[in-house]
Amino acid sequence: MNKVETKSVNLFYGAKQALKNISMSFNENNVVALIGPSGCGKSTYLRLFNRMNDMIDGVTIDGEVLLNGKNIYASNVRVEDVRKRVGMVFQKPNPFPKTIFENVAYGLRVNGITNKRFIEETVVRSLKQAALWEEVKDELKKSALSLSGGQQQRLCIARALAVEPSVVLMDEPCSALDPISNAKIEELIWELKKKYTIIIVTHNMQQAARVSDRTAFFYIGELIEYNDTKEIFTNPKHERTQNYITGRFG
């Protein structure tokens, strides 16, 4: 069970409300795309699920974010445990300035795993899952910073997968990449959804249409429309959605 859900979530940066009463649920082994113009709150919404907003001073959140039925904002929940179960890939590839091997192994080490064999096996498996193994298998000891941008982003995906999360969040994972790397990551998303629930923020309409099962359209902190991707792109219910996906505004 990897069910994810939000119930009437409101989020404020100081006095400014960035998310307005958002309730959504996500099915397991689905890819959900969050789309909308800049500043609409989709990235903020994505960061609810691994409590990344906690890092910002002055954020207040009410409502519930449920992972397998449990509110991850409850006071008895350790934020580190949430982040182990909800991996994240960021907009700009952000590998650590360490070796390729250590980048992937890092999540295991900080979670107290010391078994060398297990760590090695997990690194290999994660790199294979992220479709990077063939390119780096002979240079695991090289610095991650020597990889190309697209390879770095797949390394970041491998790093997120190594701790075996059930949900993977992706915040515009392709926006800093060239078209070939972009295509590789999209292919990878197709593969990954067999095992994971994936929530992806994207500014690229074609990408949303290609990779996602369901799509949610956000506008100024509100969820305007959430439906099957096919429906959203062929038969949107709201005029705003229609205008956005056809490029008339945003």
Binding site: M52, M55, E80, R83, V110, V163
Partner: peptide, 9 residues
Amino acid sequence: EASFAVGST
């Protein structure tokens, strides 16, 4: 962010 995202304290 990358460090926190894999569950580091």
